[in-house]
Simulated assay, not measured.
Amino acid sequence: MTATLMADEAAFENLFPNKSFRIQHKLVGDQRLTLPAILELVKQMPRDRIEYNSGKANVSQDPTTTPLVDLDPQEVVRQIETAGAWMVLKRIEIVPAYKELLETALQSVATAQGFKSLDAAGFTDVQGFLFVSSPGSTTPFHLDSEDNFFVQVHGDKQFAVFDNTDHSIVSEEQIEHAITKHRNIKYEDRFAARGTVNELKPGEGVFVPYIWPHWVKTKDTYSISVAITWKTKEVKRRNDLYVVNSMLRDRGLPQSAPGVKPALDAVKLGAFRVAAGVAAPLRKSEGLRRLIRQVVLGKDANYYYGEKKKSGQVGM
């Protein structure tokens, strides 16, 4: 198999999956990652898998005051060079052609490490997030709930990633909030010493470990990028506990961080996964997904619909 994602062997041996490092890839020129193909993908995606707003955001953007753009998703793509917009298409693996792209890319990494399958390599719950950004757009400081090979396909970007191994940049409480409420985190100048700013051109990328904060800036041309993500069993377990803790905390019940009380974690996790199993068939409906998010994560969980557009703000 021809490798799709590549890095120095020493990086995989010494850094993966605990530290960030640069990668290279062979997805430039893939027809699935061109504006015409992305426009067709937008037409296929459920509305709750599309999030977009103005690219004129701050690195430390308050999500309640994120500026929006008065365009529908298709027009954002059509006018991306001048729209002043940032857009992400979430869970693109629901479309078979993109599922194949993601799995082929990760399989090349698994094979290079001596694994015969994605599962054997720990690449489970594979998901893809496709970003289209106008020139000069900023993705605010935030963290994500999965490991991520971020690849730059068109245009140039600055991608700044920050070492949060000891949680000194983002605390456990802030991590829980970012995973369950809104991903944005307040940026402070003191973080700079812990960060690495990667200048990315097409064909280049960066590995971003689980819950490592980062901000991204598009440079002088429009940008197309893809986050190729996965969750290990331990990451899925920790994320589920963050969700349970957030639900209980919202109901006035203080909670310990995951791992502090293992026996109680096991009880909470068992109950949550039974409930999640019951709800799983309902998630096939966008309307029910929306309702479940609101019940589980709170009234502002569906902020990406942009329903406060008239006020020029978006909820958390």
Score class of each variant (00 low, 15 high):
Asp250Asn: 15
Gln255Val: 15
His177Asn: 12
Ile224Asp: 14
Leu106Tyr: 02
Val28Ala: 14
Ala105Asn: 01
Trp230Gly: 14
Ser134Asp: 04
His177Pro: 08
Tyr98Leu: 03
Gly203Asp: 01
Glu51Met: 08
Ser134Gln: 05
Gly195Arg: 02
Ser246Leu: 12
Ile50Met: 10
Asp250Arg: 15
Asn164Ile: 02
Ser145Thr: 14
Val88Tyr: 08
Glu40Ala: 14
Thr165Leu: 08
Lys219Arg: 08
Glu204Tyr: 00
Gln79Thr: 05
Arg238Pro: 05
Lys99Pro: 02
Asp156Val: 00
Asp265Thr: 02
Phe150Ile: 06
Ala279Asp: 07
Gly128Glu: 09
Gln152His: 04
Ser168Cys: 08
Leu241Met: 04
Pro258Val: 13
Lys217Glu: 06
Lys217Gln: 07
Glu100Asn: 04
Gln174His: 09
Ser256Pro: 12
Ala7Arg: 03
Gln79Pro: 07
Ala301Ser: 15
Val28Met: 09
Lys157Leu: 01
Val126Ser: 09
Ile94Met: 10
Phe21Tyr: 02
Pro135Glu: 00
Gln74Tyr: 01
Phe12Arg: 03
Asn14Leu: 01
Val216Gln: 02
Gln313Asn: 14
Pro213Ile: 05
Lys309Pro: 07
Val170Lys: 02
Pro209Trp: 01
Arg249Glu: 14
Leu27Tyr: 02
Ile92Val: 09
Lys217Met: 01
Thr165Gln: 12
Ser20Lys: 00
Ile224Cys: 14
Arg289Cys: 12
Arg238Trp: 00
Asp220Tyr: 03
His167Cys: 11
Asp125Phe: 12
Leu118Lys: 13
Gln313Lys: 15
Val267Glu: 03
Ser285Gly: 12
Val95Cys: 06
Ala11Ser: 13
Ala121Gly: 05
Ala57Val: 11
Gly312Lys: 00
Gly122Val: 04
Arg283Gly: 10
Gly136Ser: 11
Ile80Lys: 08
Pro73Phe: 00
Ser171Met: 05
Asn58His: 09
Arg78Asp: 08
His177Arg: 15
Val278Cys: 12
Phe150Tyr: 05
Ala121Ser: 03
Phe149Ser: 14
Glu234Tyr: 02
Val278Glu: 06
His177Met: 12
Ile169Cys: 11
Phe129Tyr: 13
Glu234Met: 04
Pro73Met: 00
Phe150Gly: 07
Lys310Tyr: 11
Gln24Gly: 06
Lys231Trp: 01
Pro36Lys: 11
Thr2Ala: 05
His214Ile: 13
Ala193His: 10
Ser225Ile: 03
Ala178Ser: 15
Gly55Ala: 08
Leu248Ser: 11
Leu143Gln: 07
Gly259Gln: 13
Thr138Met: 09
Phe16Ile: 01
Gly270His: 11
Gly312Cys: 00
Val278Trp: 09
Ile92Leu: 04
Val151Arg: 12
Phe123Glu: 07
Ala7Leu: 01
Thr196Cys: 01
Leu39Ile: 04
Glu204Trp: 00
Leu5Gln: 06
Asp156Tyr: 01
Val88Thr: 14
Thr139Ala: 00
